[in-house]
């Protein structure tokens, strides 16, 4: 394996992501998210160069600028404005959540090793990429399950989305660019709406602990 193999970066991204459930600090998790997404952007750029797909290079640039820098900065600003720095966590203590995430990283390798290998002409993508993608999805789910604050829920969703993107990047060749742009636009708009709702939740409830939003029950 050499440094120009995208798989190294997506696996590194999956490993960094497993650390996220271990921290309850919003700022630390946002940093981790930025690093994970930046690694995904590097993997995307390397895949684009390897396959001479210059449209994908544009996607890599958008991921680096909008998702790896833009979203963490805007969420950092949100947490600063709302004066929240720490999630209380729920369901599992943080260290246990992190260890579950690491275990699921291992499980992802077993789950994906029987998947048919991707048909890629210029080498690259193997089942390791699929394992990294599935592991990111698991980590995102663990984060959503074990966090109470709305910002952490959005972070969990973004990690899941990163996992799906990594899976698509390594297991397929040439997902239509329009579709990828559409997906990115939807995710960005979703995060923006989520961000606005967080402010509204703070204003109405004086907290952003979504575990306490339990008025509507049968």
């Amino acid at each position: 394996m050499n440094a120009s193999n995208p798989e190294i970066y997506v696996i590194a991204a999956a490993i960094v992501a497993t650390l996220m459930p271990g921290s309850l600090h919003i700022r630390v998790n946002l940093w981790f998210y930025g690093i994970v997404t930046f690694l995904v952007a590097i993997a995307t750029a390397l895949t684009a160069i390897g396959h001479a797909e210059f449209g994908l290079l544009g996607v890599a640039l958008l991921i680096a600028v909008l998702k790896a820098v833009g979203i963490p900065l805007s969420l950092l600003w949100t947490s600063g404005r709302l004066n929240v720095s720490r999630d209380k966590g729920c369901f599992l203590p943080a260290p246990l959540a992190m260890h579950s995430s690491i275990l699921l990283l291992g499980a992802s390798f077993f789950l994906t090793k029987d998947l048919p290998l991707p048909v890629v002409e210029n080498g690259g993508g193997g089942w390791l990429g699929a394992a990294a993608g599935i592991s990111l999805i698991f980590t995102g789910l663990i984060l959503m399950l074990t966090r109470r604050l709305a910002i952490s829920q959005i972070l969990g969703f973004l990690i899941i989305e990163n996992g799906i993107f990594v899976f698509a990047l390594t297991q397929t060749r040439g997902m239509p660019l329009f579709v990828e742009m559409g997906v990115m636009l939807d995710v960005l708009v979703g995060v923006m709406i989520g961000g606005v709702l967080i402010f509204k939740i703070q204003k109405s409830f004086e907290h952003i602990d979504v575990a306490q939003l339990t008025d509507l029950r049968d």
Partner: peptide, 8 residues
């Protein structure tokens, strides 16, 4: 607000 958050 609660319903919208859950929905989204």
């Amino acid at each position: 607000l609660e319903a919208t958050w859950k929905y989204l």
